[in-house]
Simulated assay, not measured.
Amino acid sequence: MAWLYVLLAAIVEVFWVVGLRYSETPLEWIGTVVAIIISFYAIIKACEQLPSGTVYAVFTGSGAAAIVFVDFLLFNADFSWAKMLFISVIIIGVIGIKVTTEELVDTAAKEAE
């Protein structure tokens, strides 16, 4: 479940980063703030079961990669193969962190068994 929180936080991060750049009306700014709150809440929930360094690394790496793709697809950002190479390195790193990280075990729940 913790990894779903990290995924949710990274997805919502795309919305609030775009909102920070393009919001103009009060309603758009409110939506951006709500997205920030949801994203950080999901990070906090993930940190209850995963090491915070891992959560932060995966959150920022996957969010940054997603934002670059959104910029390419929706906002006509300059595309280069060098950017794609480095984004691929980030994605490989995020996958590597996920594969090598174990969720924290609730020792109180384990002792109750």
Rank of each mutant, 00 (worst) to 15 (best):
A65S: 14
A112T: 08
L73P: 07
I43H: 00
P51V: 10
W3A: 05
Q49P: 00
E24K: 12
G19E: 03
L4Q: 07
V6Q: 02
A42Y: 05
I90V: 15
G19A: 01
S39T: 02
I44W: 11
T54I: 15
P51S: 10
I44P: 01
V12G: 02
I91F: 09
T54S: 12
A82V: 15
F59K: 01
S23Q: 02
F75Y: 14
A108Y: 01
Y22K: 06
F40Q: 10
I91Q: 10
T101Y: 08
A66H: 05
E24I: 11
V89Q: 03
D71I: 06
L85C: 13
I67H: 00
L8K: 00
V55M: 06
F72V: 10
I97F: 05
M1Q: 09
K110V: 13
I87Y: 10
F40R: 01
V17M: 13
V70D: 08
A112C: 05
E28V: 00
E113D: 12
A46E: 02
E102L: 13
I30K: 01
L27A: 13
V94H: 06
F69V: 15
V70H: 03
A66W: 03
S80I: 07
W81E: 08
A46N: 01
G63K: 02
I87Q: 09
Y22A: 03
Y56E: 04
V94Y: 05
V70K: 05
F75C: 03
A2L: 10
A35W: 03
M84G: 14
C47Q: 12
A108C: 00
V34Y: 01
S88N: 12
E113K: 12
I95E: 08
Y41I: 14
A64V: 11
M84H: 06
I87M: 13
I92A: 15
A66P: 08
E13A: 13
G61M: 05
C47H: 01
V34R: 04
S52H: 06
I97C: 04
T101C: 09
S52R: 08
I37W: 09
E102P: 00
L8Q: 03
M1F: 10
T54L: 08
D71R: 07
L85E: 08
V34D: 05
A109I: 09
A66Q: 06
D78W: 10
A57V: 05
T32G: 00
E13D: 10
L20E: 00
A66V: 10
Q49V: 09
E24T: 11
L8N: 01
G19H: 03
G63N: 06
W16C: 04
G96T: 09
G96V: 11
A65E: 11
A42H: 02
A66D: 07
V70F: 12
G93K: 03
K110D: 13
I87C: 12
L104M: 15
L74Q: 08
V33A: 15
E13L: 05
A57S: 11
Y5M: 07
F15R: 01
K83V: 14
I91A: 11
A46M: 03
S88F: 14
K83I: 15
I91L: 15
E24V: 12
T100M: 14
I11D: 05
E13G: 05
G96W: 07
E102C: 09
D71S: 13
V58D: 04
A2P: 09
